[in-house]
Design a protein around this nucleic acid. Sequence first.
DNA 1: AAGGCTTTAGGACATATGTCCTTTCCGGAA
DNA 2: TTCCGGAAAGGACATATGTCCTAAAGCCTT
Lengths: 231, 231
Amino acid sequence: MKENKKINPHPYIERYDLERIFPEEFIPKVTVYTFTKGDVLFAPGETLYDMYLLVEGKIKIFTLTPEGKSLINRFKRPLGVVGDVEYVKGNSVINSVEAVSDGVMLVASFEDLKVLERNHPPFIRFLLETVAHKFYSESQASSLHMLYPVEVRLASYFLSISSDGEGTLFHQEMRTANLTELAEWVGTSYRHLNRVLKKMVSDEIIERANGSIKIKDLEKLRDLANGNIYE
Amino acid sequence: MKENKKINPHPYIERYDLERIFPEEFIPKVTVYTFTKGDVLFAPGETLYDMYLLVEGKIKIFTLTPEGKSLINRFKRPLGVVGDVEYVKGNSVINSVEAVSDGVMLVASFEDLKVLERNHPPFIRFLLETVAHKFYSESQASSLHMLYPVEVRLASYFLSISSDGEGTLFHQEMRTANLTELAEWVGTSYRHLNRVLKKMVSDEIIERANGSIKIKDLEKLRDLANGNIYE
DNA sequence: AAGGCTTTAGGACATATGTCCTTTCCGGAA
DNA sequence: TTCCGGAAAGGACATATGTCCTAAAGCCTT
């Protein structure tokens, strides 16, 4: 990820109504960084001095164990925030962060933000809402993972990305590129994911044709997900 | 849980330095509620109009599935907060909350807090820190649960309550009353917990004598927990 | 078109965990 | 003291999930 002075932050400020968070006089302190698909943006243990606002592209937050297992905690799209918890708690980066696509971040230093926080309450309100939302969805996902088998979690995942309902916006956040990634997202092995998919096919819930998956029976899917849905 | 006008909030305000959060003129709006061990304090779906500050006793937050499974999300001791996320996000209660011991809560209405929030930034700062901490530990616990088998989680649990390190304070929060509760906390069945305990005994990591568990080999425990610890 | 890498698909087997049930033990109520 | 219900301990079996491996298909590069 590197600073890119050619890009003007203003269009993004406008597009996402960031004036309510960043007053006019703060904007000069905001810099623009770009990144490329596959970039490792942050690594665990790293000390953070800035907060990042994703305004373009998609990134994933994941945990790597010493044994090499990988678990995707969440995806972020605009207007995702990176570094909020580190800013508040003052600790170092917890998870790995990687670019899933090319993208753009707005960056502001913790130092500047501390001043902003004192003079401009809406900023801290924004942070609070961000973190509250993160907590809420993390908490939901965690319960779902602990209490239900992969089949249910997977059904829940399919439901959430099916363009059926309204809230397609957030749901898109977790669309995965391939089955390996889907496995890491659902929190299981590729092998087992495959097994469950096969069962869903034989139960006539989904159809598989050359790599792509289609939902065949939305009702059965709902039954299976049993009211649970990734928020 | 019921209002108890006999109890004066001031001693609690002082004990926990709540003056920084609640300015003098706000304190008259704070009421005191008491509860008794076993009380169901909140049920999922309930609409909340107040925020609660636990100042005495211990409560547990847990999820109940339609199938009757139970999973303990976390325990709270003073100065735990209930209703913070609901206040920020405006949604209804997510989990069940039950009193593990007798206790006392300070209560303030969302309505009053909204006014306070506008006039008194430290309050919203407090909320932000509370929620950030909750998110952080939820996130850690969630990864631990997803990535490691019960044996590791259990080792991690024992480590965290062993009065070895400094941070005994927070760790006490999750001391459980009996094995059934411990199972719900670690996120497994009683049967399986028992199995894992037995293995730990035969590995000479712990000792069991009439219901109580003693750590025999802290080193082995650390190896097993593998750097993971409930925060 | 050929070779090589990634992704998909699934067999065989091992391990982790759940469900159901029985027995024993212990402390409190009668 | 006796009785009862909950908590502890563990056997037997079923299910969920992981690990390791092989083969085929798809796609990019040369």
